[in-house]
């Protein structure tokens, strides 16, 4: 299989690679940033990359119920919304006690 990414067509592999790059960027952001909100941004990017691959599989891969991928994405978005709400609430709660949301400084396991 020839590795020609910018072919004049879009196949499953291409979408998967785009998703992988997006996931990798999200991973990097989530691991390397100090601000809790930035870490959350990385996590959201990773979730988006996963969603993208779900949609790609739904679009390209043979299946009796191809739209199940979409349903999964809807669930992931739901969970992401809940997760974001709780995580940001945690950030605010931590800020209230320590006046910082730098994950490096929130190292004590007690308040």
């Amino acid at each position: 299989m020839s590795i020609v990414l910018l072919a004049a067509r879009v196949d499953l592999e291409h979408v998967l690679i785009v998703g992988a790059v997006l996931f990798a960027i999200g991973l990097y952001v989530a691991l390397s940033k100090r601000n809790a909100v930035a870490v959350l941004m990385g996590i959201e990017l990773m979730l988006n990359a996963v969603n993208l691959t779900f949609i790609a599989f739904a679009r390209f891969v043979e299946s009796p119920r191809p739209l199940d991928g979409h349903v999964f994405v809807i669930f992931v978005i739901t969970v992401a919304a809940a997760e974001a709400a709780v995580a940001l609430a945690l950030a605010v709660a931590v800020y209230r006690h320590r006046e910082t949301i730098d994950v490096g400084k929130i190292s004590l396991l007690r308040w």
Partner: peptide, 9 residues
């Protein structure tokens, strides 16, 4: 009051 930069660790 927290820092608003986007620095890495």
């Amino acid at each position: 009051l927290s820092e608003r930069d986007n620095s890495g660790n």
